[in-house]
Every structure is written in structure tokens, then in C-alpha cells.
Amino acid sequence: MLDLILRNCTLTDGRTGIDIGIEADRIVAVMPNLVATAGETIEAGGQLVTAPFVDAHFHMDSTLSYGLPRINQSGTLLEGIALWGELKPFLTQELLVERALAYCDWAVAKGLLAIRSHVDVCDPRLLAVDALLHVRDKVKPYLDLQLVAFPQDGLLRAPGGLANLIRALDKGVDVVGGIPHFERTMSEGAESVRILCELAAERGLRVDMHCDESDDPMSRHIETLAFHAQRLGMQGRVTGSHLTSMHSMDNYYVSKLIPLMHEAGVAAIANPLINITLQGRHDSYPKRRGMTRVPEL
């Protein structure tokens, strides 16, 4: 007796007329003409059955806020960060929850059932943190929402950045985030990576750091992130997001960097939609595309 059988499914490999048997939330049989009974049977009618889509990098605290308080005139990341800073004083928990829930409805309707969202922790009120923790609980029956404590204005650059991030983790945020390239100096950025990785290791948490979202080939915090992941034995628990400076690095240096990332078990999350829009804004010609080195990685 199975819990659920999906009848007459088409799979991503092209097979059709397939039955899928599920017991205790696990797939236990995939075959045509499955002979079994189940508590529930769903006729798929030959439609595609696939794993859900995953959005591995999102900012749900700023979703559906285009044009607030104004439109980004330069199209650059730095103006975008400045705009978010202008908007923060006018945020309310109610509006944050309302917009986030609206987005979650859209996501689930399109088959997107897992989202990792960064949430800004530099507002000492932690309004966005409280709002998205509420949203995470509310959507739990149908959407896996994982939250990253993200010091948007810099862990060391923003007053109280580290204290606020720790408060967010204490409230139940899942992942430790960072933005080393936004610190005041390269050395401060490297120090923020060390502090955050050690904090995550101490608490047994994952790390997902905005890293080197820049056109500057000398922005090399991913190297530091890989070093600390390896040093602290965090293989498989650390991610570098964006990594756009890699599009401007020379091949020789990258031939060293990628093996270091592999040794440290550091994952890479490319964000093509946003980075091909934001990056290369200071270029005349040739214009860089703003993507990390996806084929090599």
C-alpha cells in the first residue's frame, strides 16, 4: 500500500506512460503499469512530471519594489545599493510580508518550490528579518524558503553590522552571508570573510557570500573564501554568489583559483539575469558581459 501513485506521467528523459509510486515522501517506484494500491492516485494525463525549480539566489525583502523610492538611473550595482538604503527608512513589516507572499504565490504557480533569499540585516530594527521569518513559516507547507543573513552595507563598514547579523542568526535565519567587496578596503573585505566563516563553523551553519560582484579583476575575495572553507573543514557548505570579477581575470590566475575552489568544496551561483544588466556599465568598448566563468566552473 503506497501513499501516492502518479499515473501516466511523461519524464524529462522522454519516457511516457510512466507511473510513479511514493511512500513516506520518497519515490519508491518508477515504471510503466505499476501494480499497487495507494491512498491517493493522481492521473497525470501524459503531462510532464519533473523536480521543482529552485531559485538559489533571491532578495525577497526587496521584491516588487521597482521604482521605490525612484528608478536606478545609472543601472549600476552601487546606485542600486544606494537606492535600497534610501528605501529602508520607509519599509514596514506589513508591506514586506505582503509583497513577499505575493511573490511566493507567483513562484509556486510556475513550479518554483525552493528559494534561497538573502535578507538585509543592516537595519537595526531587523524589520526585513522578522517579516521573512514570518513568511518562511507561512509558506512552509508548499515552499522551502531558506534565509541568508546578508549585511548589505558591509559587515565591518556598517555600524553594528556584525552584532545585527548575529541577532538575525539568533532569531533563526539559516545561512551566514557577506559582501566583502563592499567593505572599505580589500583587507577589510578579507577580514569579513574570516569572521563570517568562523562564525558559521562555530554554529554549524552554511555560508553564502556575495563575492566579487565587480568588474575589477583584482577583487579576489573568492580566493579567501575558498581558503577559509578549506581551513575550517567546511567543504560542501560554502557558496560564492555572483563572482563576476572572474570575467575580467587573466586565465593564468583562474587556472589556480578554480582548483582551489574545487579543493574547498565551494559552490558558485551565477546570476545571469541581473549581472548581464548591472556589470560592464563603466565600459565604453569592448563591453564585458558581466558573467562569471560558467563553462570553466
Rank of each mutant, 00 (worst) to 15 (best):
L101Y: 09
H282Y: 13
F90D: 11
G39R: 12
D216F: 00
A200P: 05
H262M: 10
A200F: 06
N164D: 11
P259D: 00
D174Y: 08
D3N: 10
I5A: 11
Y66H: 15
I5H: 08
T292W: 04
K138R: 15
E23C: 12
P180H: 01
A36H: 12
D19R: 11
A44D: 07
F182G: 01
S214M: 02
N33I: 10
A190Q: 11
L101I: 14
V129A: 07
F53C: 12
T92A: 10
V294H: 07
I222K: 00
V254P: 00
A29V: 05
G204L: 09
L6N: 07
I42T: 07
G75I: 03
L297M: 09
R7T: 09
V28R: 07
L113P: 05
M218G: 08
Y66F: 14
T10C: 13
A229Y: 00
G111C: 09
L273E: 14
S284Y: 14
L91M: 11
A109L: 13
Y253N: 00
D25G: 12
H221V: 00
A38D: 11
W84Q: 13
M234I: 03
I195Q: 11
V135P: 01
D208F: 04
T224S: 04
K138H: 15
G178T: 02
D25M: 11
Q235A: 15
H247S: 13
M186G: 13
E183F: 03
A36N: 11
H221R: 02
L2Q: 05
G240D: 02
D13C: 05
S117E: 06
I42P: 02
L232N: 06
D170R: 15
V135Y: 04
G161V: 04
T10Q: 14
T37P: 07
D174F: 06
E43P: 04
T12G: 08
E223M: 03
V97F: 06
D105P: 08
S284L: 12
P124A: 10
A102V: 15
R167C: 09
A56E: 09
G172D: 14
M31D: 14
V49H: 09
L165V: 02
